[in-house]
Amino acid sequence: MPNSFDHAGTWALAQVSAEGGPTVPALVAHDRALDLSDRPELGSPRSTADILARWDELEPVLAALAADTAAAWQPLSGFHVHSPVEPRQIFQCAANYRTHVIDLVAAHHDGSDGRSVEEVRAEAAAHMDERLAFPPFVFTGLPSAICGPYDDVVLPADGEQPDWELELAAVIGRPTRRVSAEDALECVAGWVIVNDLTLRERVIRRDAGALGMDWLASKNAPTFLPTGPLLVPRSAVPDPSDLRITLRLNGDVMQDESTKDLIFDTAAIIAHCSKVATLLPGDLVLTGSPAGNGLAHGRLLRAGDRMDCSITGLGAQSNVCVEEAC
C-alpha cells in the first residue's frame, strides 16, 4: 500500500482538524501540514472552497508557501484528514472504461437469449468504438454522499449489493461554460481520488421501463463517496492519461488499471459537462471506474471489509465498511 500522503509535485491541498478543533484548509508537503486559515496573503480562507474560488490568483502563492521552511509546519499524522473539497456539483461519468463495461455486460447476462458469454463480450467490445460518436453518459450526484478518505463507509441496512468503483476525479478551478475539449484541462485546478460506491441492485429500475437508471437510489447513500486525501494541483500531474488506479479489498488487488483504458478522456468529459451546465470552482468531475468491481469478481462489500485505494501521484485512502445502525 502506498504512503497515504505520497503525492506528485512539492505540495497539495487538504482539509484537516486537530482533536476538538475546527476543520481548516491546509497546505501539505508529503508528511507535513501548514494551516492556511490564518494566512492573510490567501485571504484567511475558511476552507479549500475559498481557495478554489480564486485558484488562478492563489496557486502561485501556494507554491511559494510550500517552499517556506520557516512556516509553522506540523506533522500531518497529528491531524484528522477530511475530504479536501466541498463541491456544489458532482458530475459522474458512467461506464467509461472499456474492460469494465464489457465485464458488467457479461455479469448481467443471464443466457436467456441464447448467446454465450464470449459472444456477449465480443458484442460489447465492438460497441465501445461506436460510443465515441455520442456524448459521454454523465449523471449528477449529491455532495452529502461525500465522506473523508479514512472515514468508515456505512453500508445501508436495506442494501443488497454494495460495490466499489475507484475513480480519478478532476476538481474545477474556474467557472466553465462551453469549453472545448482542447482547452478543457485549463479549467482543472487539480485531481483527487474518489471511490464512487454503488448499490448494484438499485441501478436498474425494472418497473420503470424506458426511464432506465435510478442513480439517486443506487449512488447517493451517506459515505458513498470517500474523497481524498489530497487535492494535487494539475501543475504536478499535467497529463492524466496514464495514471494507475488500484483498489485492494482486505489486501487483495481487485482493481488495477490505467486511465489509458478510458473511452472518453477527462477533457472530453469536462467539455461535455460544460455544454450542459456551468461548472463551478470546486466542482468534481468523476471520470468512471475501471474493471475489477465486485460484481465482476462475485464478491460484494460487507461489514468489516477494508478498501485501500490509490491513484498514481494522488496519495491513498483507506475505508472500513460498517453496518448501518438502525
Results as ranks from 00 to 15, higher is better:
4 S>Y: 13
5 F>C: 12
6 D>V: 01
8 A>C: 09
11 W>N: 07
14 A>Y: 06
15 Q>A: 14
19 E>G: 07
19 E>D: 14
20 G>F: 05
21 G>A: 15
23 T>I: 15
27 L>K: 11
32 R>N: 10
34 L>S: 09
35 D>H: 03
36 L>Y: 11
36 L>S: 11
47 S>W: 03
48 T>C: 12
48 T>K: 02
50 D>T: 05
50 D>P: 07
54 R>G: 04
56 D>A: 15
56 D>S: 14
59 E>I: 11
60 P>A: 13
65 L>K: 04
69 T>G: 04
72 A>Q: 13
74 Q>P: 02
74 Q>H: 10
75 P>K: 13
81 V>R: 07
85 V>M: 10
86 E>V: 09
91 F>L: 07
93 C>P: 01
95 A>G: 07
97 Y>E: 04
100 H>I: 02
101 V>E: 09
102 I>W: 02
104 L>K: 04
106 A>C: 07
106 A>E: 14
107 A>C: 12
110 D>M: 01
111 G>F: 08
114 G>R: 08
115 R>S: 14
116 S>M: 04
119 E>V: 01
119 E>K: 10
120 V>D: 12
122 A>Q: 15
128 M>H: 05
128 M>R: 06
131 R>S: 13
131 R>D: 00
134 F>A: 14
135 P>Y: 00
137 F>Y: 11
141 G>C: 12
142 L>R: 12
143 P>Q: 09
145 A>Y: 02
146 I>W: 03
148 G>S: 10
153 V>F: 02
154 V>I: 15
154 V>G: 06
156 P>L: 00
161 Q>C: 05
166 L>D: 01
166 L>H: 03
168 L>E: 06
168 L>D: 08
170 A>P: 08
174 R>T: 11
176 T>C: 15
178 R>A: 14
180 S>L: 05
181 A>P: 03
183 D>C: 03
183 D>W: 02
185 L>A: 06
188 V>T: 04
188 V>R: 06
189 A>N: 06
195 N>S: 10
197 L>G: 01
198 T>V: 13
202 R>G: 02
202 R>D: 02
203 V>T: 11
204 I>V: 15
204 I>T: 13
206 R>N: 09
206 R>Y: 10
206 R>F: 07
207 D>V: 02
211 L>M: 13
213 M>P: 12
213 M>N: 14
213 M>V: 13
214 D>T: 01
217 A>K: 09
218 S>H: 00
225 L>V: 01
227 T>S: 13
227 T>N: 05
228 G>N: 10
231 L>A: 08
235 S>R: 14
238 P>R: 05
239 D>Q: 07
239 D>C: 07
245 I>H: 02
245 I>L: 15
247 L>D: 03
248 R>Y: 02
249 L>G: 07
250 N>I: 09
251 G>F: 11
254 M>T: 07
255 Q>R: 00
257 E>R: 12
259 T>H: 09
263 I>C: 00
264 F>C: 01
265 D>I: 00
267 A>K: 03
267 A>N: 05
269 I>D: 00
270 I>D: 04
272 H>D: 12
274 S>C: 08
275 K>Y: 03
282 G>L: 07
282 G>D: 09
294 G>A: 06
299 R>N: 10
301 L>Y: 06
302 R>N: 06
303 A>E: 15
304 G>E: 07
304 G>Q: 08
307 M>F: 02
310 S>A: 15
311 I>V: 15
316 A>V: 02
317 Q>P: 01
319 N>K: 03
320 V>A: 12
320 V>E: 15
321 C>R: 03
324 E>F: 00
